[in-house]
Amino acid sequence: MFSYVIKRAVATLPVMAMVAVVVFAMLRLTPGDPAAILAGDDASGAQLEAIRRSMGLDQPIMVQLYVWMKQLAQGDLGVSLLSGTPVLEMIGGRIGPTLSLAVLTILLTIVVAIPMGVVAARNPGGLLDRTVMTFSVLGFSIPTFVIGYLLIYAMALKLGWFPVQGYSSVDKGLWPFFQRLVLPTLALSGIYIALVARMTRSSVIDVMGEDFIRTARAKGAKETSVLLRHALRNAAVPIVTVIGIGVASLITGVVVTESVFNLPGLGRLVVEAVLARDYPVIQGLILLFSFTYVLINLAVDILYTVFDPRIRY
């Protein structure tokens, strides 16, 4: 068990290193010169050269990579080209809304999607199943920002139940905090719920075809108990897996949702940095999001041991 955890954890290191190399390569090998951006349009050649030197851009590429990885290993993500603020500090200032949104969405998804999938799997092809599947196809197909605007249009503009946009942090009161997160959470969870409900459904249906389900029926077990005790428990591994993988689309969704609802989170920060071509900030955020994704999936790997006794070395 312990050695399994260590093994999984160690296995994430090369992935993270590979992420770092890909990000580095992307930013350094594509056309576009950070120094030119920093210097502004009317800088002279000499000025540009000086800036380049101060940023270490005149060094060979492998040296740059080494320096950069070293800084990274020490937790140094560099400073913003525009404001000069350390990237880490900027992230700290903007993480609140993003974290709140993500956690609420994951909770909502788990509470809604798993029962949906199980109910659908109970009778494949039945009315409930078709309803759930329809909802799931809709969730996949309607882009988060379209759902967002439809929600704003209906619930905020027409009905006036929620504020149109904006964010209010928890310390300014719980109600305004939630009031402003309801619509974003709904918009964001659409695709995630679709994903998890679909996987729950198909894995439960899969397991229902296994031999041991027949054994359970031969024991005289109730169909509900067959479904929950035998099928769902065995379907747990693919379900948690998809919850982990779904974090990728969740991150995409966060970026979009924060733009639609004007939430001052990390997603907005990415878009702002991209529009301003603030390289260190872009770099830092991509790394942050990627590492989060890798770590969440590490957690999922470790969760496997809880659900499946066969995975235990």
């Binding site: 594509t30 991209v274 990627s290």
Partner: peptide
């Protein structure tokens, strides 16, 4: 491991 939208945003902006 890099969320696809971020990868795409970065590539386009670069």
């Amino acid at each position: 491991a890099i969320p696809s939208i971020l990868l795409a945003i970065a590539l386009v902006s670069l």
